[in-house]
Computed example of a mutant assay.
Amino acid sequence: MLSVTYKMESSVSRIYIIHTEATKNTSRRLEEDLQPLSKFSGLLPDIASAYSVGSADDVKNVFGAIKKDCIDNNVKPLLHVDFHGSEQHGLVVKPGHYLSWEWFASRCREVNIACQNKFGVVMACCYGLNAIRGVRIGELVPFQYLIGSQETIYEGADIDDSFSLFYKKLFETRSFEVALVGLPNKFQPFYAEKMLFIVLAKYLKAGTYGKGFQERKERLITELVEAGQYPTPQNLKLLRASITERLKFDKDGVQEVIDKYSASFLGQPSQIKIDDLMTILDR
């Protein structure tokens, strides 16, 4: 199993808070906690006024406003989503009306394109981590990072004061790793670049490098022997030499694959280098 430590610093310049009628109280408390810190201490980024929504069109308009800010003012946005959530149906915009997780992710992708993969999302709702379930390598990721839970969230035990402390610590230290300590353990981060790193490392491990390469080579030798190659010592030696040459690890070629998927998934070059992946696989 791959173990990858990933550290990410915050570059947020504006926080947007979005809530429904059912969650307006927790959203208001968060805004009241953060506004003084932003205005008077300069500790936090600009806090946009909280948006109250009651329909899919309202939510689309909020995303449109964030997108416009990104294009016109080079904003690096963080969206705080204070909704109720349903594991199966998505975000509850009002009783009996839902925004599917896929719909929400699609709106996020539009903003992430506009801000060049600098869009962050914090899901203060039940099952908010489900918003990542449609993320696929090869398609532009909807957000640079998302913090959410795959469990039920309870007002009071899970939300009261936790997010105010989270944001204060995040912008004091600019470290997600430090800030997340203040949230309940059920909240977990998704980092797009970390996901890409793990997928690429698994690709190498599966048959291009290290143990996976050796297993792939022996499997090809077995297939050739079963197809009629007589397994004399000399034949096996020649087969191994031939297959090793054919499958020879090409660092430049693998770096091209990394760059290709970085462009399609992150929308820009990544800091991931082939030597970083090899270091993980060599452990």
Rank of each mutant, 00 (worst) to 15 (best):
M1Y: 15
S3I: 14
T5N: 15
S10M: 10
V12F: 02
Y16A: 01
H19S: 11
A22Y: 05
T23L: 07
T23S: 07
N25R: 15
T26L: 12
S27M: 02
S27Q: 01
R29A: 12
L30S: 01
E31F: 05
E31S: 10
E31I: 03
L34N: 01
P36N: 04
S38A: 09
F40M: 09
L43R: 02
L43H: 02
I47K: 00
Y51S: 12
G54L: 03
V59I: 15
V62C: 06
V62W: 05
G64W: 10
A65H: 13
K68Q: 14
D72M: 11
N73A: 12
L78I: 06
L79V: 13
H84N: 11
S86L: 06
S86R: 07
Q88V: 13
L91C: 11
V92L: 13
K94A: 08
K94S: 11
H97M: 11
H97S: 14
S100M: 03
W101C: 03
W103N: 07
A105K: 00
R109G: 03
E110H: 07
V111H: 00
N112T: 10
N117V: 04
F119Y: 12
A124W: 02
C125N: 10
C126Q: 03
I137Y: 07
G138A: 08
E139I: 13
V141C: 15
V141G: 06
G148F: 01
S149M: 05
Q150T: 14
Q150K: 13
T152Q: 12
I159P: 01
L165N: 12
K168F: 05
K169Q: 09
K169D: 09
L170Y: 00
E172D: 08
V178Y: 03
A179M: 00
K186S: 07
F187V: 01
Q188N: 11
F190D: 04
K194S: 07
K194Q: 15
M195R: 11
L196A: 07
G207A: 09
G207C: 12
T208E: 15
Y209K: 13
G210L: 08
G212T: 05
F213K: 12
K217F: 02
E218T: 07
L220Y: 12
L220I: 10
G228C: 09
Q234D: 14
N235C: 08
K237T: 12
R246E: 15
R246Y: 09
D252I: 14
G253Y: 07
E256V: 10
I258L: 10
D259V: 04
D259C: 06
Y261P: 03
A263M: 13
F265I: 03
G267A: 07
P269C: 08
S270F: 08
D275I: 08
D276V: 03
M278R: 15
M278V: 14
T279F: 10
